[in-house]
Each structure stands twice: as C-alpha cells, then as structure tokens.
Design a protein around this nucleic acid. Structure first.
Lengths: 251, 251
DNA sequence: CGTGGTTTTGAACAATCTCAAGAGTTGTGG
DNA sequence: CCACAACTCTTGAGATTGTTCAAAACCACG
C-alpha cells in the first residue's frame, strides 16, 4: 500500500531540522516536562519521536488504527473528531501547542477517532509503552500524565454542561473565552488571535448549525463585545463576554 | 463542626462487617485488580479504606473538597454532577459497582463536582498518593488506572456526540442500551433491571426535559420495544432498540 | 478570472421546552 | 394504620430556540 498514510508513516524519523529537544522546547511548561527536573526531561526527550510537520488537512490519527502513542502538539492546531455509526461527524476537541491528543485510545488499544491538522502543524509522538515505563521511574512524569488525562476529563465534562444547559450564545461565548485563555497561557495575546478552524468546525463542536454561528458573530459584533473579521478575532470587552458566557475561563 | 459531612467522615474506619478484601471482591474483574497477580491484588488491598455504606441522598464528594482519593463503587449507585456558576446542575455520569469516580479531581487537586448516592451504596476509598506509589511499582496497576481514565474520556466523548447530534429518542435509547450493557457485564440480567435514578436525573443527564422522558417512555412502550413500570425496565426488543439508538452498546 | 468552498442573510419549519394541571407514590407523624 | 404533605411522574397545549432550506456574497487558489 504505497499510498497509505497511517500515522506511523507521517511521523518520519527525526532529522536535524525538526529536532527540538524537550529541554529547549518553548512550551515545555504546558507539556509533560512541567514539574520535571532537567535530567528527567532529558530522559523523556530520548523516547520522543519528532517528524516533519504535517500539512493542513492531513490526518495524524485514523479511527481504528492501533494505539502506539500519544501526540503532543508543538505548533499548529489539530482537530479531533469521531464518526458515529450513522456517519455523523462530531468534533471532540481542538488541540493547540502544549496539549496532548490520543489518551482516549488507551482503553481499547485503538484510536476511537480521527485527528486532522487544521494548519501545518508539528507534533511529537510519544510511544506509550515507553512512556509507561518511564512514568514508573519518574514520579513527576506519572503524576503529570494523570493530570493531563484528568484535565481532558474535566474539559469534556465542562463541554457536556455547555451542550446540555447553555444557549447558543453562551456556548459560543464560552468557546471564545476558552480559546482566549489558551492563547494567553502560551504567552500570546488573549485579546487578539486567529481562529484556526472554520465556522463549520465551531458549529459542529458546539452542537449548532453553521448559520447560527454566523448570526451569533453578527450579534456579538453589534453589541460591541468582539470584532471578528474572517478568522481574526479581537475581544473588545472580555468582562461582558465572560459574563455572557457564564464561565470564568474554562469551558 | 459536628454536623459536617465531608467525605472523610462518611468513610469510617473499616470494621469486620464492611471489610471485603479486594481478593474476594465479587467485582474485582471490573475494578482496578483486573490483570493483577494475586499478590499484587493483596498489596492494593492494603491501601483501600472501606467504610460503612452511605445512605441514599448522602454526598460522597462535595465540590471544592480537596482531593484525597478516588472511590470505587462496591454496591449501589452514585450520581456525579457539577453545578455551573449560574446554579444549573449537570449530571456528568452515573457510577455502578466496579466503576471508579474522582479522577476529575487530579488536575486541580479539588473535586470539581459532587457525588451523591442514589441508593444505599458501599464504596472503597483509594487514597491517591498511595495509589500513585503503588502504580509505580506494579505496572499492571498503572496500566489499569490509565485504562480506567481513558474509559472515562471515551464515555464523555460519546455522550458529547449524543448530546450534539442525536434526537431525544436516540439519546434515551442509547442510555437504556448502555445501562443494559453495564448490568450484563456484572453478571446481572441485561433484559430486566431497575433504574437507580429518577426521571429527572435521566433528563438532566441527557439534556432533555423531564416531560420529554415521560413521553419517550410512553412511545417506546407503544412501539413494543421496552416495558417500563416505574423504575423496572424490561427490554423487549434489543435489536430494534439498538438500531434506534444508533449504537452498539456504548453511549 | 472562473470554480469550489466558506460565510452570510432571510424566511418557514420543527423538535423540544415551558407552563399548567392532575394522578400516582412515598414518607411521616399523630 | 391512616392522613397529609411532598415528591415524582404523566399528559396536554402553546411558545421558542435553533434548524433547515435556499440563495446570494465573498474568498482562495489554481
């Protein structure tokens, strides 16, 4: 199968160009190395595979692939989605630099969903068996894996609440506030940022129609809370937006 | 504070009556001991606290309590829920024997939500720091914790899909099929079982109105798929119900 | 400078909610 | 053991949010 594009082939063996050590990684505070001693980070670094960047639209993970590891996003952005038996696509999350995708595959040994690059992105593949062994040796690493998975659970439960109990306006407001928080955490502006995803991805994620997102954007602009030109977002009144969203900064 | 009912006080020191060792536990195949050698189970057993059963309506976990451990359900059933800033309750899951609650507290160090007994229930408290240490020594245990947390993520993502993309009928159908599966897995009948929760809990969990649940029950009975008398469920046509639900057995 | 995808806007429609009221159930105290 | 109070559940009818369908404007990219 020369044209097969499984994740194992996308992630090419590391070469100099794409090899940035964990120790030197800009976003190590957001990733597994947080809380580790320098020597421990170096140890972790030895098991990480880095490949060439994956292009927009390319799949990092295909549903049904057997689980070999988790992927830390180094740059770019990834959307994770599942497809139900009746063919409906459901986006389960957007992953930004420092965030890790693939923990949902541990239980069954197969990735339950897809992961696709929203733009050119660099990811670090972390083989899970080796990560497990290392976690048994480095308590801080084990702890950080538990934390990251726990974060994922909290994020999903918060989204559940959004979908169940909040209006379209509140959902979209929360979405913007949450993105703003995650950009700010990386040292980027939390006032101005670029949406990496299409309107249809936002609507899918939030359980709304694309048209509803368009209308909400128009409305929030009329109210002077935000300014959104294409994918460029400027948050004009974070307080009002947070109140409207009914959240602090998580969603 | 003599009337305070924090989780630490609910779980009384073990006594003979409530001390069932992990090795002898009926549901060890569904719980952390699965995959462990006998001696490893014995080791795990030494860190588990078992208390007297908690009564219906009593809280096992209060939101904001500091994280000390996870709880394995031994008997009964527990509902987990969060309360949003504007006071809305959102049930995030129902936990049955063999299932473990509390992993969402690892990331922040505080339980983000509440856990309340739907009926008299017995739980095993597993202090997390000790569990971490033990997990570092017993690879199978570490693996099983990862699996359990991964399961939780998958469960939440599936529910997300339900809430976003499925009709009220499909959601309720999936809910029944999923419960059926979980009862069957415990060796109980998957055809006939008793709902541990009220209609309002089901509606809250599924993002519907109570009235909608009532109407759906009436409808599914008219169609001859199920028979539901009060909380006693009998599934009359599992095939049709599964097709309607659009799932195999997970939700 | 077309072609295909994305975004916006309008208008009618539908699924589910809300409100309201009644029936059934459970628990409690006299 | 009965009666009252408090829930829980069911059923009906109208209201509403967000959807669907349709079409035009905009953009990106070859």
């Amino acid at each position: 199968m020369p044209t097969k594009t499984s994740n194992m082939q996308i992630i090419k063996p590391a070469n100099n160009k794409h090899t940035i050590r964990c120790q030197d990684c800009r976003i190590k505070q957001l990733c597994l190395p947080v809380m580790l001693a320098e020597s421990e980070v170096a140890h972790l670094d030895t098991i990480v595979h880095r490949g060439r960047p994956i292009n927009k639209g390319q799949h990092l993970i295909q549903a049904g692939d057997s689980f070999n590891g988790v992927y830390a996003i180094r740059s770019g952005s990834i959307k994770a989605y599942t497809i139900s038996v009746d063919g409906l696509e459901q986006i389960t999350g957007f992953y930004l630099p420092g965030e890790i995708i693939g923990f949902d595959a541990i239980s069954s040994g197969f990735y339950p969903g897809f992961a696709k690059a929203l733009e050119t992105s660099a990811v670090c593949e972390i083989p899970f068996e080796r990560l497990e062994s290392l976690a048994a040796e480095i308590p801080g690493l084990q702890r950080q894996i538990f934390r990251t998975m726990s974060d994922e659970i909290v994020k999903d439960q918060d989204l559940m609440l959004q979908l169940n109990k909040k209006s379209a306006e509140q959902r979209f407001g929360s979405f913007l506030v949450n993105l703003s928080f995650r950009f700010g955490r990386r040292g980027l502006s939390s006032q101005r940022f670029r949406l990496p995803m299409a309107r249809s991805d936002i609507s899918n994620y939030l359980g709304l129609a694309v048209e509803t997102i368009s209308r909400l954007i128009a409305q929030l602009q009329d109210d002077g809370l935000v300014s959104i030109q294409k994918r460029e977002v400027e948050i004009l009144d974070m307080n009002k937006l947070s109140v409207l969203a009914g959240t602090s900064c998580h969603q």
